[in-house]
Amino acid sequence: MEYLLHILVMAGIYIILTLSLNLIVGFTGLPALGHIAFACVGAYTSSLLALNYGISPWIGLMIGAFNAALLGVLVGAPSMRLKGDYLALATFGLGVIVYSIAKNWVDLTRGPMGLPGIPKFSVLGFELQPVWAYLLLVAVFVFITAFVIGRIVDSPFGRVLKSIREDELAALSIGKNVNRYKLIVFTVGAFFAGIAGSLYAHYITFIDPSSFTAMESIAVLLMVVFGGMGSIGGSFIGALVLVIFPEMLRFLGMPSSVAAPLRQMIYGLLLVVLMLRRPQGIIGRYRFK
């Protein structure tokens, strides 16, 4: 039971990541490959604040999210000049840079040794120790994220985002300040990814750079694509399926030396099949051009 709840907590954190990346990739059409970097900043910020200064995770989470949003502005800036593959490469590079900083700035982050003993959230003096309590907390944040991003995309503002995805030049020709919208989208996306990172850190109570590798960014992107680009419901499905499904493989009773690579292979195969049969994702409507 505990284990099941644990998986749901992880799925919830990934839903937040997937929703926030979907805003950038699926709704606005900006290929971003460094999403986990924002989570990394959020996680390290609130962990370090809690460990070094005893700051409550609640405040740490907010500061972490703001820090991540700040990084989002930094990533958003090149997105004004770079398009398509080039933007994908630039954001990928940024993910690598943030990872390297986390790994090599040993004085601050303790590098590969990681940060142990990160405190959990507490509500009214009670630490959210049981997994079900943490699941409730994550659920609240999933709800907030889905609500806010849902409203953003279902509005005149969101319509402009989609128009940028569809044809940037046409959007410019009817007076949309495309660069401004891109910057906002990266900032908002990074903000929520920062929340996810912080939630992760205070749940696992240990973080090290290996949780924030480029592979993680790609995994989140897969969840976006799998569930459906430009679909809120799709982000739920993508994250849930791709978090829960690999866990099920655990019960096949294979030695872990086989199970781990097999999991990767099935992941890959799933995606190839999906792209061939249903390129818009499980419930998405938007296709790659």
């Binding site: 402009v160 959007a171 020709s173």
Partner: peptide, 19 residues
């Protein structure tokens, strides 16, 4: 535009609203 620039995967109404 000479080569028409609409927002292809959006409805006709949305295309107009954007203007």
């Amino acid at each position: 535009f000479q080569n028409i620039r609409l927002f292809p995967q959006m409805t006709v109404l949305e295309n107009i609203l954007l203007g």
